[in-house]
């Protein structure tokens, strides 16, 4: 029971982190039709910028400034790169972001080198807030939860209660009409791209100390973010939240479980082979849930795409 509670909290932390990434991505995707492959790269840039700033000015300054830099960089890339490619169609756009992801990884390695950076949590949060059983919950994890929820509420407020939010919402569904009404849709695109990448930057700043700051961090997280928004459904902030939490808990509980596939085989009436090395099914006999945990979201995505292509909460098909 204790472990269950702990896992619930850990899953929440991971899920909310995914949400910060997927919120920006789903806005960009639904508005511009671009699957931004470089989204996780902006997350990485956030972590590296924050690391660099934190070595001079401390963690908190990094938390404030790094996402801004990332957002400006994102807006710049939209303005001078993506907008140019936009005229060629969606596939080149997607491939552009794909190449961008490669390029950003190389540039990061060029400036910061290839090994892991010692980017750490701020000292003020380096204590165990409470513990359940023997497992301690670090104060920093609780801080992560609060930051993510604050961002979610702020986004929700902006999107539903402000004029800018109304325009964005309208542009999500009827970009042509919005343009016809005299709104500067390219400007909106640039803004949304900037804000979306800045959100990814925030996620990088606060996740970097926990999940590690290294050149492969974007690649590790890259495709799972797409999985999240596809499962959640396009353009739906709530869908993104739901899918993020679902994936967060799913991977956490899969990793925490001690379920063995041998149990299923035994249940099916099969006998455990005496000589495991000679058995054709030896891999199935030794398979455990934690081994396949990270691929569960992909299975779920394929399943959802086959039965319900517009995702859990999406309003229109892909």
């Amino acid at each position: 029971m204790d472990l269950f509670l702990v896992n619930l909290i850990d899953g929440l932390v991971y899920g909310l982190l995914l949400f910060m990434l997927s919120a920006g991505l789903t806005l960009i995707f639904s508005m511009m039709g671009v699957l931004n492959f470089a989204h996780a790269s902006f997350y990485m840039l956030g972590a590296y910028f924050a690391y660099q700033i934190s070595t001079y000015l401390g963690f908190w300054t990094g938390l404030l400034i790094a996402p801004l830099i990332v957002g400006v960089a994102g807006a710049g890339i939209e303005r001078y790169g993506l907008r140019r490619v936009h005229q060629f169609g969606h596939v080149p756009e997607l491939i552009f972001t794909f190449g961008l992801a490669l390029l950003i990884e190389e540039v990061v390695q060029f400036f910061w080198g290839k090994s892991q950076k010692a980017y750490d949590t701020p000292e003020i949060l380096q204590f165990a807030l409470f513990s359940i059983g023997n497992n301690s919950i670090a104060a920093y994890k609780v801080f992560m939860i609060f930051v993510s929820i604050a961002i979610f509420l702020a986004l929700l407020y902006v999107l539903t209660r402000t004029r800018v939010g109304m325009i964005i919402q309208a542009a999500l569904s009827y970009p042509k009409t919005v343009e016809a009404l005299g709104h500067n849709v390219p400007m909106v695109f640039m803004g949304v791209f900037g804000v979306g990448t800045a959100l990814a930057g925030v996620a990088g700043v606060i996740a970097g100390p926990v999940l590690g700051t290294f050149p492969g961090m974007a690649f590790v997280l890259g495709s799972i973010v797409f999985v999240t928004i596809v499962i959640g459904g396009l353009g739906s902030l709530w869908g993104a939240l739901l899918a993020s939490l679902l994936i967060g808990w799913m991977t956490t509980f899969a990793a925490a479980s001690s379920f063995q596939f041998a149990d299923i085989l035994l249940f099916l009436g099969m006998e455990r082979p005496a000589d495991m090395a000679a058995s054709k099914l030896r891999d199935l006999w030794t398979l455990t849930m934690p081994q396949i945990g990270p691929i569960l979201p992909y299975m779920l995505m394929v399943f959802i795409l086959v039965v319900r292509p517009h995702g859990l909460m999406g309003k229109r098909g892909l």
Partner: peptide, 15 residues
């Protein structure tokens, strides 16, 4: 065993 290079968050294993 955990998947090679695919785990983003090791906390559940640590728990």
């Amino acid at each position: 065993l955990h998947p090679l290079g695919k785990v983003k968050d090791f906390t559940p294993y640590a728990r």
